[in-house]
Nucleic acid binder design. Structure first.
Length: 425
RNA sequence: GUGAGCAUAGCUCAACUGGUUAGAGCACUGGACUGUGGCUCCAGUGGCUGGGGGUUCAAGUCCCCUUGCUCACCCCA
């Protein structure tokens, strides 16, 4: 029994799982490069207001899920529950709007929410997020969704569903809100307890309720689509056209409401059947007022976040973790060990990965270890070889082997490392 | 915050209605095989049965408490 454990809802990530994580991160970073997104490293902690102001006082995240505490200077600080608020703070604080528009950023890292853990929901969880500033155009929405589409295709994650919605803007949402309130007020007695509270706080959320009876009631509820102003309506239509013309399949779902207050117009969610109750792998939307609320110039923006452990869970179901091929030096005797170590150091200088034992072992021991470590080649050096100034190489999966001179080892290893790298990519 | 289920070796799981020293597979280490891995066989390491209390001649097994995990609600990535 170990003396210490991780905190509730907080997990270690180590091999082989971490290989899947690395693959996800690599794929994302390559893609962001192609789409012109730059990495932004935001702090894990902010002054509490950054989150309360943006996410919304009445939301569950702010109301009961934040890791908030007072630091030694008597300031209220909070471990970030999401990334967008920090990126916007950074954007305004550093006047990133002065850069050529649109400004596009991505981030990767842990988020913290004090919740009861369950499948796909941890207290510390990782997100990959992207934000695109200063483009009000539906093209920006399409690009964001295009990146996600491309990303999941590259990772070969099957059976995902993209659902989109528009929740209107400052101009038209109030009308819809009051229409909703009017509609549900008439049927208040049939609503569940939670929804009665929602009716007062945020009637939009009633659309999200999973209680059977509420689902029935909302069948005849007014549709957001009928209340969108001209601007929002044409934006949404344009996005639908763009997605269709780019072959990105989606479904309209008027109940995609999102739990954060800052969203406007486009909201979306990508879900999987294979995840359990917490079935969203990625989600996001447009937030056209947030930058201004943070003291910046009026700046439309849109972004998304991908849940890393949820995605990694899907990848484990459908994709085996990749092996890591490398070279294994098997020296026999002290002199050989010295030679092998200096050869290995030489290779490391050339950025070539190789494994060399640091103590003496029998050849059988070396072979077993090389096999367990999944090595591609073993390079053996013993007394006979030292005399002839050679080494024996063996390709483990085929069993073929041969002898080469010590001088040629560097070239041999370089050649095969290149081949392996080519095979892997 | 609410509800349900589960806690036995590093992992996956055994142990008949309570009954002697809690077992097996995988993994790990070593040997059979002295310079050639995977297969096979043999041996070894590894446990306060999550913790505490109770019932009993006797508790891994029954009861209570506690902690942890899991799933679901809520909510969300």
């Amino acid at each position: 029994m170990s003396k210490y454990n991780t905190l509730k809802g907080i997990h270690d990530i180590f091999p082989p799982d971490v290989f899947v994580w690395n693959k996800i991160e690599r794929t994302a970073k390559d893609l962001f490069y192609i789409f012109g997104y730059d990495e932004i490293k935001i702090p894990v902690m902010e002054s509490t207001e950054v989150f309360t102001r943006s996410i919304g006082q009445s939301t569950d995240i702010v109301g009961k899920e934040m890791y908030t505490f007072t630091d030694k200077g008597d300031r209220s600080v909070t471990l970030r529950p999401e990334g967008t608020a920090s990126v916007v703070r950074c954007y305004v604080e550093n006047a990133l709007n002065r850069r050529p528009a649109p400004q596009k950023f991505y981030y990767v890292g842990p988020m913290f929410r004090y919740e009861r853990p369950q499948k796909g929901r941890m207290r510390q969880f990782y997100q990959i997020g992207a934000e695109c500033f200063a483009s009000a155009s539906a093209e920006a929405d399409a690009e964001i969704l295009g990146i996600l589409n491309e990303f999941f295709n590259k990772l070969k994650v099957p059976e995902l569903r993209l659902e989109i919605n528009s929740i209107g803007c400052k101009a038209c949402r109030p009308d819809y809100n009051s229409a909703l309130t009017r509609f549900f007020s008439q049927k208040e007695e049939f609503l569940c307890g939670d929804c009665r509270a929602r009716l007062k706080k945020n009637p939009l959320r009633i659309l999200d309720c999973k209680v059977e009876s509420c689902g029935q009631l909302r069948k005849d509820a007014p549709l957001i689509t009928d209340f969108l102003c001209e601007n929002c309506k044409s934006h949404h239509e344009r996005l639908r056209e763009l997605l269709t013309s780019r072959g990105i399949s989606f479904r309209d779902n008027p109940s995609i409401v999102r739990g954060l207050d800052y969203y406007t117009k486009t909201t979306f969610e990508i879900t999987s059947e294979h995840l359990g109750a917490q079935n969203a792998v990625a989600a996001g939307g447009r937030y056209d007022n947030l930058v201004e609320e943070f003291g910046g110039p009026p700046t439309p923006a849109i972004g998304f976040a991908i849940g890393m452990e949820r995605l990694a869970g899907l990848m484990k179901q459908f994709a085996p973790s990749p092996n890591t091929p490398f070279f294994y030096f098997a020296p026999l005797g002290e002199e050989a060990l010295n030679i092998a170590i200096s050869l290995a150091i030489n290779l490391m200088d050339k950025n070539i990965s190789s494994i060399c034992t640091q103590w003496q072992m029998s050849l059988k021991g070396h072979m077993k270890r090389a096999d367990k470590l999944n090595a591609e080649y073993v390079i053996m050096i013993g007394a006979d070889e030292i005399q002839k100034n050679t080494a024996v190489w063996k390709h483990l999966s085929t069993g073929t082997q041969g002898e080469i001179s010590i001088e040629d080892i560097g070239a041999f290893v370089t050649l095969h490392e290149k081949r392996l790298k080519a095979e892997r990519s």
